[in-house]
């Protein structure tokens, strides 16, 4: 009986959280243009989300491409199909690994940053101070973070794609002795508009959900530093899960529809 009650109360709590998150999303969508009034904040956030994450994204993309080429190459050699290694790496990076790697890395980096910053502001009553003066935390804190993520995630994903393809091409050349000019040519030939569309639409959605989820967890922080730590973990876990879930949905839907 007691266990049932705790399950019910936990379910109710999650439902209430989902309701609060939905209200935040509605508030974001209603006020998204207010980033203009917090322009300097938005620029600052863009710098933090974009250029400061560049090295991480390049390394993440490069390693993903190298792994994809190494694993894929050995299997392709078995079937005598090593010549399609360039195509495999390119499409794998653009359609799947690039957005996923960028999404997961940014869910960890940007998500943890947003939650801990806003959560610390919540604990030190800075958000109450904004509300007390009639300023909306959504407009002042959440929207600059969402807009900067929306703007910066796509170029970062493309950078992850490119570094992955470069890594994959070099590994294919060095390990499997595929001609470099042939590899470059097959990379250029295989990219189609559909692949680019798939690769570009994902980061737009990933960025919105990562930034809004992480801000929501920050705003819902209460108690003390232990709670803030838990919120940061939950934010990264939830953002990563949403990135993976959305990726599955996109892949399935796009292959069915397009």
């Amino acid at each position: 009986m007691i266990k049932n009650n705790s399950i019910v109360s936990s379910f109710k709590k999650r439902l209430a959280s989902l309701e609060d998150y939905t209200l935040l999303v509605v508030d974001i969508l209603k006020n998204i243009t207010s980033y203009k009034t917090s322009w300097s904040n938005t620029i600052q956030e863009m710098y933090s989300v974009g250029p400061q994450a560049l090295l991480l994204i390049i390394i993440g993309g490069l390693f993903a491409g190298v792994i994809l080429a190494t694993e894929g190459g050995h299997n392709l050699v078995t079937f005598g199909a090593i010549t399609v290694i360039g195509r495999t790496v390119t499409l794998g990076m653009i359609r799947e690994l690039g957005p996923i790697i960028a999404g997961l890395l940014l869910a960890s980096r940007t998500g943890a940053k947003n939650t801990s910053e806003i959560g610390a502001m919540q604990l030190s009553e800075q958000i109450d101070a904004l509300r007390a003066f009639g300023l909306s935390p959504t407009k002042k804190l959440v929207i600059p973070r969402v807009v900067s993520a929306l703007v910066m995630f796509l170029p970062l994903t493309l950078i992850a794609d490119i570094s992955g393809i470069i890594g994959g091409v070099f590994i294919s050349h060095l390990t499997f002795h595929v001609d470099l000019a042939y590899l470059i040519n097959s990379v250029m030939q295989c990219i189609k508009l559909k692949d680019l569309f798939v690769g570009c639409i994902k980061p737009v959605f990933f960025s919105f959900f990562i930034s809004s989820i992480s801000c929501y967890y920050g705003l819902s922080t209460s108690g003390g530093t232990t709670e803030l730590g838990k919120k940061a973990i939950n934010s990264v876990v939830m953002s990563s899960a949403v990135v993976l879930g959305l990726d599955v949905i996109f892949t399935k839907v796009i292959w069915e529809v397009l």
């Binding site: 030190s124 009553e125 800075q126 109450d128 101070a129 007390a132 003066f133 009639g134």
Partner: peptide
Amino acid sequence: VRRKIGMVFQANALFD
């Protein structure tokens, strides 16, 4: 009305 009220919070709530 709210903007006629100032508040000094217990933890100061300064923007660090």
